[in-house]
Design a protein around this nucleic acid. Structure first.
Length: 202
DNA sequence: ATGTCGATTTGCT
DNA sequence: GCAAATCGACATA
């Protein structure tokens, strides 16, 4: 089966919600510390830049932390949450448009022992990569990788020609964004129906 | 300069 | 099921 790395054109398209859905079933890999780890994306969440109250870039906010969100599509945006968790996002759209997609969970396929060691988990459990902080930790991603080009060879995505039918994509409201007012209820969280590797948060 | 709080996870009651 | 953990970004002064 053909496996092709997602190229710049995939990320620079303008419809972030479409990209967020298309990312389901794609594969995410990291080759960090000379170790290959990765798996299939099963849950994503879209943040629509300056017009989205839940986005860090709402209103065009531009700070040291959010600067990377304005990069060209296909750039990593990683930030620290609750002082503990590194959250991995994929920037989309053209340069200057601060859209991003949070990768919330994946089904691990490659380098499982390495991911277990990074997570200090030594049993087979869905907890390994369910939830954005847990998944980034398993992949070895941290805030130092913010701004990294996802068309390079340290963090990248691949199309394995798995397509998720619309009927198997569940859309629901985003998690942990109650502060976003009217935008909190928008159905921008997507996951694969009946996939046990999706994150536990409601 | 200082205070508040988060796009979460984990462990314990 | 609930609350602690933990620190830097951001807002306010």
């Amino acid at each position: 089966m053909p496996k092709t790395k997602l190229d710049r054109e995939f990320y620079t398209r303008s419809d972030t919600l479409v990209i967020a859905k298309e990312l389901l079933g794609k594969y995410l890999f990291t080759r960090l510390d000379n170790a290959l780890t990765g798996g299939m994306i099963v849950e994503t969440e879209a943040y629509l830049g300056a017009t989205d109250r839940a986005s860090h870039a709402f209103g065009g906010r531009y700070t040291d932390r959010t600067r990377m969100m304005y990069s060209l599509g296909g750039t990593a945006y990683v930030y620290l949450c609750y002082g503990i968790h590194d959250m991995f996002n994929i920037v989309t759209g053209e340069e200057g448009s601060p859209h991003a997609i949070l990768i919330r969970a994946m089904e691990p396929t490659v380098g499982i022992e390495i991911m277990q060691a990074r997570r200090k988990i030594h049993q087979r459990t869905y907890r390994l990569t369910a939830g954005p902080g847990a998944m980034a930790q398993a992949l070895g991603i941290n805030v130092k990788h913010s701004g990294m080009d996802l068309c390079g060879d340290e963090i990248w995505l691949e199309d394995h020609e798995i397509s998720i039918p619309d009927a198997d994509i569940l859309a629901s409201s985003r998690v942990g964004v109650a502060y976003a007012g009217d935008d909190a209820g928008l159905p921008y969280r997507f996951r694969i129906r009946n996939n046990p590797w999706t994150s536990p948060a409601k």
